[in-house]
C-alpha cells in the first residue's frame, strides 16, 4: 500500500519548549492513522504542521511525495480541535460558503445525508448541540471530497452516544477509501477506529505500529489488576512483588498472566487481598501507562 503522507524528523520549538521534537512516520493510503497522547503531548502541533497551519522549526512533510503548499488545501479535509464559524449563518449557508472555496466539491445534499444533518439545515449553526456541530464540521472537512482527512480530537467533550455516532461516520468515510489522520487522547477511540497508531509523549513518538502488534509486543496474556493498597498493606510487600512480578502503575498493582487460575492461586497463597480485583485484556490505556509511567493527566474519560 502506497504512502500518502511522509513525515521526516519534524520539529517545532516555541522558544525553550520543544512542542514537537523530531517526529517521523508514514501514513498509508486508505487507513485511519491515530496520533495518541495526553494533552500537551504535541499531537495538535504535529497535525497543524501537517495541515500547513503551523510552520515547522525543521523537518519535512511530503504529501504524495511532494512538499506541501497552498494548493494542498484543495485535497485536504480539516477538522480543527477548536474552531468557530461565522455567526448568524444556517447550516446550509455555511456548507454553501465553504463549497464555494473549492474547485471540486461533493454534492451538499450527499454531505447532509452522510453527516446526518437533515433535521438542522435551516438552523443557525450556533444553536446546534456539541455532537451536531462536530458533524457539521466534519461535513465541512469533507466538502472538497479530500483524499486525506485530518480530525483533531473530534469527539472531545461529546457524550457517549454522540461519540459512537461520530465513530460510525469516521468508519463510513474510511470505507470510501479516504485516509484519516486522527488525534485523540481517548484510547478506546483509537482502538475502535485506528489501523495504525503513534503514541506521543512530551513531543516525541514513543511507539508506532498497529495497535494489536503493540499490545502483543508489550503484554502477554491477561492483565490482573488490584488496588495498589492491597499490596502496600501486605506485611511482605517486597517479597510478594518480586515473586509475582507485580508492576505498580499509578494506583494499581498489575500482574501479566498467561495462566489466570495459577496467578490467582499464587496471590491467595501469599495472603494478598483480592478485593477490587479485575481480570482484563491489556488495552492501549495500559500500553500508554506502561510506556510512559504516567497516565493521561487532566483527561476526562467518557
Amino acid at each position: 500500500m502506497a504512502e500518502i503522507l511522509e513525515v521526516l524528523d519534524l520539529k517545532r520549538y516555541f522558544s525553550k519548549n520543544k512542542a514537537v521534537d523530531g517526529v517521523s512516520f508514514k501514513v498509508k493510503k486508505g487507513i485511519c492513522f491515530g496520533l495518541l497522547g495526553p494533552n500537551g503531548a504535541g499531537k495538535t502541533t504535529t497535525i497543524e504542521m501537517l495541515e500547513g497551519i503551523v510552520e515547522p522549526t525543521s523537518g519535512n512533510i511530503l504529501y504524495q511525495g511532494k512538499a506541501i503548499d497552498k494548493q494542498i488545501y484543495h485535497e485536504l479535509g480539516i477538522q480543527f480541535q477548536h474552531t468557530a464559524l461565522q455567526d448568524h449563518l444556517t447550516v446550509i449557508e455555511t456548507l454553501k460558503m465553504f463549497s464555494a472555496f473549492y474547485d471540486k466539491t461533493l454534492p451538499i445534499k450527499d454531505l447532509i445525508s452522510l453527516c446526518q444533518l437533515d433535521d438542522f439545515i435551516n438552523q443557525d449553526h450556533r444553536k446546534l448541540s456539541g455532537g451536531q456541530k462536530q458533524r457539521l464540521l466534519l461535513a465541512l472537512a469533507l466538502i472538497n471530497d479530500p483524499q486525506l482527512v485530518f480530525l483533531d480530537e473530534p469527539t472531545t467533550g461529546l457524550d457517549p452516544h454522540s461519540r459512537r455516532l461520530f465513530w460510525d461516520l469516521v468508519n463510513k468515510i474510511k470505507s470510501q477509501g479516504k485516509t484519516i489522520l486522527l488525534t485523540t487522547h481517548y484510547m478506546d477511540e483509537a482502538e475502535y477506529l485506528c489501523d495504525e497508531i503513534a503514541i506521543m509523549d512530551k513531543g516525541k513518538i514513543i511507539a508506532l505500529d498497529r495497535p494489536e502488534v503493540l499490545l502483543q509486543q508489550h503484554f502477554s496474556g491477561a492483565l490482573i489488576k488490584l488496588p495498589k493498597q492491597n499490596i502496600d498493606t501486605h506485611e511482605n510487600k517486597e517479597n510478594v512483588s518480586e515473586q509475582l512480578n507485580i508492576q505498580f502503575v499509578q494506583q494499581s498493582a498489575q500482574v501479566q498472566s498467561l495462566d489466570i487460575q495459577a496467578t490467582l492461586v499464587a496471590l491467595i497463597e501469599q495472603g494478598v487481598s483480592l478485593e477490587g480485583l479485575q481480570v482484563k485484556s491489556a488495552n492501549l490505556d495500559d500500553l500508554f501507562l506502561k510506556l510512559t509511567g504516567h497516565g493521561l493527566e487532566g483527561v476526562n474519560h467518557v
Binding site: E51, G52, Y73, H82, T83, A84, L85
Partner: peptide, 17 residues
Amino acid sequence: RYRKNSVLKRLHATPLR
C-alpha cells in the same frame, strides 16, 4: 473576533486567499 475565535484559522485551511 474572527481571529480570536479561530474563524480565520478555519478559512485559512481552505484555498481562500
